[in-house]
Amino acid sequence: MANADYQGAIEDWGTSARRWRTVSAYLKRNPSLVVGAILLLILAAVAIGGQAFIDYRDAAPLSNRPSRPPGADYPLGTDKFGRDLLAILVYGTFLTGKVGLVAGFLGVVIGAVLGFLAGFFRGITDTLISLFTDVLLTIPPLLVLVVIATNIPGKLDTDQMAIIISLLAWRQPTRQIRAQVLIMREAGYVKTAHLGGTSRLGIVFKELMPNLIPYLMASFVLAVATAMLASVGLEALGLGPQNEPTLGMTIYWVMLEGAFTTGLWWWWSTPLIALITLFVGLYLVSAGLDELANPRTRRRGA
């Protein structure tokens, strides 16, 4: 009851100005969402905006003088193989982001459909989907990915990588969405809508879906984070795309060449900082969305 948002005139009922004021008032109360989003936006700006200024070829080996410290020519220096680390930052972040978004998106779409079917229709549909998901959930994801990745014939590219990762990325969303739909379909407001003449389909899309959106968003962010974690992990093991300058691949070379002992601190710090910003940003956004989806935790710190 703290905010006076509900107060005031009745004339602006149903206008967009009223809606926007509600949204901005909410964002002020959820700093973790805002800070996380800012971190991710900075990375996105670097990864997308930077492509206008930096040549993709600079991220390839032997394209520049090797082992240069940061300076006028190379703002972030170059690695032992002559890759420009600024180019790696731009294109590596872009590629890692792409894999995560594609895999996370596929995962959430598949998960949302399966979870919704299971939760809304229940019965045998639910039993089959849940059993399938549960069995697959007990299998460690990295393991399956590693097995698949090593056995893909020929050279992997980031698109294939995204698809491989999405093969497992749908499991958590399926569980989460199913659980949520199971709760929501029994909600009192479903009855109210029914009484208000809303059709079955209308109830799904107008009553349930809007309430699912925070969960879908949270699921999506979580799925993206998990997918990125998996892709960077695979790359760091040397199992990712060999010919593309991903951040994980850079970490792989750092570990293989022992960059710590050779004193090339800029080699490992660039991808490391990019990755940490990425994961912390995703974490904060996901924590913020969690609060949005689950108002109960708003009481935290009381």
Partner: peptide, 21 residues
């Protein structure tokens, strides 16, 4: 909690740099 967002092995890399290297 922020550290929890970072994968184990990246923290491992930092630790190696600081305490070993």
């Amino acid at each position: 909690m922020i550290l929890a967002a970072i994968p184990f092995y990246l923290i491992g890399l930092i630790l190696i740099y600081v305490f070993a290297s």
